[in-house]
Simulated scan of single mutants.
Amino acid sequence: MAGPAAPTAAASVHLSLGEVHALASRCLVANGCDAVNAGAVADTIAAAERDICLSHGLFRLPGYVASLRSGKVNGSARPQVEDLAPGVVRVDGKGGFAPLALQAGREPLMGKARSQGIAALALNDIHHFAALWPEVEALAEQGLCAFAFTAAFPYVVAAGGRRPIYGTNPMAFAWPRPGRDPLVFDQASSALARGEIMIAAREGHEVPPGTGIDADGNATTDPKAILDGGAQLPFGGYKGASIALMIELLVGALIGDKFSFEALAADNGDGGPPKGGELMLAIDPARFGDPEGFAAHAELLFAQITAEEGVRLPADRRRRNRATTATAGVAVDAALHARILDLAGG
């Protein structure tokens, strides 16, 4: 089978981060979002562009718009917070986008974690379409360890399978470093994030071996074959598949929300984000076994890791990107920029 066409140099448009935020917000408001929800989503989009996480920035905006236009997402949602237990808080997202529901749940989650030592936040009836690292980083900046999990549509096969059953099912973790930026990682259970495959298809280049299979179940590096009737593979075979399974249970059965295959069955096919849930966990190190020395002890490990030339800690590259984009702005694919302007009404 022939591979994808050779990539061509893509034209780009230069925007400041403020212009990214304003464009995203204007586009969302023009398509049925109120200002509060639009601002929360624009914060998320701008953060992704700031860190040059292109698959979760403006690239996602047409999908957000599609779900507003179709009526799938409530652009004026007001999330409702519910206290379930001393260590558990729930936010009903009321069918809106995830960012505003996350904002509503953050302070209650932090308060419970500091009171109980560990706490959980269940978010239900939301549409999550972004990276997970912003939500865990925000908690680590306040001195807490944090985890986040969410599902998607069924894109990924079980180990040994050919039928997609799991979402890409990302998980994120953040560790506080007093006086320094937190350690943060955010990774899919699939070998490659869905958005990266979509960008590869748009730009006409192959994806790494082990990313996915075509409609006949054959291994392929053609992103279009993976997206059009094929399926994604879990990272590390059964290891990634087991993590994807765990996340399905945590954000589906545990919190009373949808598995990935249930999200697909309930979806209207508008190309926007799935309806489902998210689970976050927060831990206060001050309530565990080494409240005074945990941070210094962790730094010993980080020093050992980075002592080897060429080794960096997770999130270091994103932070270097931040230092550049804060003043230099970002380059946005010109065709994408034109499409967003059209969606925003010119």
Rank of each mutant, 00 (worst) to 15 (best):
A138G: 10
H21K: 14
G195W: 05
A113L: 08
S190C: 11
F149P: 01
D34C: 09
C53D: 11
D257A: 15
G289S: 10
A122N: 05
G161T: 12
L102D: 05
S260Q: 08
A120F: 13
R106I: 06
A331G: 08
A328V: 10
L245R: 10
V156T: 15
M110E: 13
G230D: 04
E248M: 09
R339E: 14
G212S: 01
Q80I: 13
D270Y: 10
A328C: 07
A172W: 00
R26H: 09
F173P: 00
L192T: 14
V332C: 05
K224S: 09
P164I: 03
G240D: 07
D267Y: 11
L100R: 13
E309P: 11
G346H: 03
I305C: 13
E278G: 01
N31E: 04
L264W: 06
A201G: 10
P234M: 04
Q103K: 14
A11P: 10
A323V: 13
A10G: 04
A295R: 01
L264P: 01
L54R: 15
V157Y: 04
G32N: 04
A335S: 09
H127D: 04
D125T: 05
P134A: 02
A188D: 10
A122L: 03
R322E: 11
G276W: 06
I197C: 09
G95E: 11
E82Q: 12
R162N: 11
G269T: 07
P274M: 02
A22H: 04
V330L: 06
N74R: 15
D342H: 14
V88K: 05
K112P: 06
L343D: 02
C27P: 04
L245Y: 15
A174P: 03
M110H: 07
A22R: 13
T44W: 13
P178R: 12
L250T: 13
L100T: 09
A328G: 05
A10Q: 15
H127C: 12
